[in-house]
Design a protein around this nucleic acid. Structure first.
Lengths: 237, 237
DNA sequence: TTATTTAACTTGTATTTACAAGTAAATTAA
DNA sequence: TTAATTTACTTGTAAATACAAGTTAAATAA
């Protein structure tokens, strides 16, 4: 019997993640050893190891045999994209979301960037366009397509300054499990250049991503255009 | 006592990976169940599960509780970069590497893209430039910097049509453990446009990556310029 | 003092056992 | 025939245990 319904290794993961995000442990710090964590949180080593393994996978820590687990830097992320500034650290307050097109239910576009299933096709998709600004500079122009699977009233929700993923998680218990993406460098067309305040034909990063969720039939698709003049997309592998 | 020195879960991983690459299991196929794999390869379920967990992380399979592990698509990879063609599947034979500058030992460049440690700075770096072609079209222009840490005779090795990572693995037992990267879209300068056979100022994908290895002081840095007109960089997350 | 060895840590690998939870097909009851 | 239930799978979670292998610092010997 678990008190929380969440598995124990997952709960430890969330606790340690929170500690790192809150600065209890900062970059370079040695995490308590596996055996210590066992004692502190009252679980066995395999359980602790599973939590740490997930953390290492997410780039939160790095494990070293014989030494321990060391906290790794946590790049700031927008949605599930990370950006690293060429100037300095990016403050939370300087991060804004502007809705270009409010979410509406439309049929899937023809010749979509990813193949869509029968079920998805039948139920249409929720379409929206957003602009993400960092220090008032437009960085991402984000076009999202969400399968219309069991998401009541989503078109009337408030999306300003809240992460789409957070709303999906809080209101619909939807969690992103992973996904795939294609990355290209393309010249900005007139629409993109207008939104991202760039000259036409300036290089823009284009990401096409398909995200899988805990609901097996629900996928979230995004077409993202990034102005990478000042900031880079940051990733771990 | 292990016969091979490689851990059992790693060996199972390599076997299954090879099977998927060789087409024994293809996309959509159900892998043998964990218990079957236990029986077949004579190991216990945690060991098998560790192998499958790594495979799921690498995007080779996807696990479904109650169903099993399903083989996922295998994008072709160059080094540790994956490309997905907009046209068709990419054949093995159509993949070539051309050396632009043979590996030489030089001091680290000033104002390097990543901070370098004292030890790295003292021992200099091995510098090389390569061009990767897919179906005779130049796709990657790759500038590599390898810390000169315990890699005897590397400057005299044959790099044509062999992966740098494979040489490091086979000859020096160096394994890439992970890393970080920054991605940008930039206009091609005259040098890049010449190598990638593009017009000047055409958008090019620029990756700056730092790779960590099993040797704690050894890092491999790459500055990669990609022509993404025909192919995209493919990634999982 | 200095170099070597030892000991006490750390994570890595592996087995064994048990039950929970999700899926799908066979069985049963309507 | 059809719908509901059961059964037999699948993976997920979790504990207890043991030893291997790598790291670091303390103890020892030169």
């Amino acid at each position: 019997m678990v008190s929380d319904s969440l598995p124990r290794h997952r709960r430890l993961y969330e606790i340690l993640r929170r500690h790192i995000l809150d600065g209890v442990y900062t970059e370079g710090d040695l995490l308590p050893s596996e055996n210590e964590l066992c004692r502190i949180y009252g679980m066995t080593r395999p359980t602790v190891r599973q939590a740490l393994s997930t953390m290492a996978n997410d780039g939160l820590i790095r494990k070293y045999q014989g030494k321990g687990s060391i906290v790794h830097q946590m790049p700031r992320d927008i949605g599930i994209l990370s950006v690293s500034g060429t100037t300095s650290a990016v403050g939370d307050r300087n991060l804004k979301t502007k809705i270009i097109k409010k979410p509406v239910l439309i049929p899937w576009p023809g010749n979509f960037m990813f193949p869509v299933s029968e079920l998805e096709n039948e139920s249409g998709c929720i379409y929206m366009e957003r602009l993400r600004l960092l220090e008032d500079v437009p960085i991402f122009y984000d076009i999202s397509y969400i399968g219309n699977i069991n998401l009541p009233r989503i078109t009337s929700r408030q999306f300003e300054n809240r992460s789409l993923f957070q709303i999906l998680r809080d209101s619909y218990l939807v969690e992103i499990r992973g996904g795939e993406q294609r990355i290209k460098a393309i010249p900005a067309n007139s629409k993109i250049s207008r939104f991202l305040k760039l000259e036409k034909n300036q290089p823009v990063l284009h990401l096409e991503r398909k995200m899988e969720t805990n609901i097996s039939s629900l996928f979230i698709y995004s077409s993202i255009f990034c102005n990478t003049e000042k900031y880079s997309i940051f990733g771990r592998f």
